[in-house]
């Protein structure tokens, strides 16, 4: 049966209608090339649509926070914020430093010494106030808050307990409280981020 596209209109040169005998046909090649080109184009178009959901320039610009340490006495802690998240800054007492140093690393879920978690000044413990379990704010930085069984921080959501180096000791959280990038810009000021 002659279909529409193989029928030769009367009075026309039949040659073009019978040329496609090679394998692959010219038409197949054009088809694959066109669809592949369109596919790559569609893929590229998706990139900005995905990228627009990443933090925008103004959000990234919030990335540094200055902290004045001069008002924080030994044994005190403050809550401030870094990238719209709570940040704990704690001035450890010598007893708390000793308690942290006394724990053998082999007992820890996420082994890290207090030395590694501070920057030269062992009494300044600066961590994110975000429980590594599911993101609640642990207690312990504010005056009179429950510091938990290990004297550091205690998360009321699911009972994760952190020690005086903010290391996870008990409960469901997998890792220690995160120490952000920071540097001492002077003896009493810290730049976080």
């Amino acid at each position: 049966m002659a279909s529409i596209d193989t029928a030769v209109p009367p009075g026309e040169d039949p040659a073009p209608y019978h040329e496609e005998v090679a394998d692959p046909r010219r038409r197949d090649f054009i088809n694959i090339a066109a669809v592949a080109f369109a596919g790559v184009g569609a893929g590229v178009v998706v990139l900005p649509l995905v990228n627009q959901m990443n933090p925008s320039a103004d959000v990234l610009a919030q990335a540094t926070t200055e902290i004045d340490l001069s008002k924080i006495a030994a044994g005190q802690a403050i809550k401030t914020s870094f990238r719209k998240q709570p940040l704990f800054v704690r001035n450890l007492t010598p007893a708390e430093i000793a308690a942290a140093d006394a724990v053998p690393l082999s007992e820890l879920r996420d082994p890290q010494s207090l030395e590694e978690r501070t920057k030269g000044k062992k009494n300044w413990l600066i961590t994110m106030g975000v429980c590594t379990h599911l993101g609640c704010v642990p207690l312990g930085a504010g005056e009179g808050e429950n510091k938990g069984p290990f004297g550091g921080y205690f998360c009321p959501c699911h009972g994760s307990a952190y020690d005086t180096a903010a290391r996870i000791r008990k409960g469901p959280a997998p890792t220690n409280l995160v120490v952000p990038d920071y540097a001492f810009s002077s003896d009493t000021t810290v730049t976080v981020g």
């Binding site: 990139l47 900005p48 649509l49 990228n51 627009q52 925008s56 320039a57 103004d58």
Partner: peptide, 13 residues
């Protein structure tokens, strides 16, 4: 203006 300047590819969108 935030879309135009800050959002990733915001100008394009």
């Amino acid at each position: 203006e935030h879309i135009m300047r800050d959002v990733n590819a915001g100008w394009l969108l």
